[in-house]
């Protein structure tokens, strides 16, 4: 159900794994923030929120990390040429913008 092996071409697309990260990530922030504060106050609600927050954080990274690794590895191979274009642009030099 959750894909953990990616080729570069597949990882470049926005897929359900990205949307899972988009939904889980704010939840993690909210649960960890409130959970930490209420845990210091020794509140049961704090323990529960903090616990769920930690579990969701682990799941979030488990889901998105393989994809981020694949994107990064692929993009690194193209980065130098993009950097050269950026330098040409800041120096008002012509670039062939039709050639990605």
């Amino acid at each position: 159900m959750i894909r953990r092996v990616w080729t570069a071409r597949e990882a470049d697309e926005w897929t359900k794994e990205d949307w899972i990260a988009i939904v889980l990530s704010p939840l993690c922030y909210i649960l960890l923030t409130l959970g930490a504060a209420l845990t210091i106050f020794l509140q049961m609600s704090g323990y529960i929120m903090l616990g769920i927050g930690i579990v969701l954080t682990v799941i979030l990274h488990w889901v998105i990390d393989p994809k981020l690794r694949a994107i990064s590895a692929d993009y690194e191979t193209r980065q130098q040429s993009y950097l050269r274009e950026l330098e040409a642009k800041v120096r008002w030099q012509d670039t062939d913008s039709k050639q990605p």
Binding site: S25, L32, I40, F41, L68, S72, A73
Partner: peptide, 25 residues
């Protein structure tokens, strides 16, 4: 890398949020 950029923003901000929790108490 792109991955390092993502994690730097996510974890740096989370640390700030946890700091706020401690401060609040």
């Amino acid at each position: 890398t792109v991955r390092d950029a993502s994690y730097s923003i996510w974890w740096g901000t989370l640390l700030g949020l946890i700091r706020n929790s401690v401060w609040a108490v």
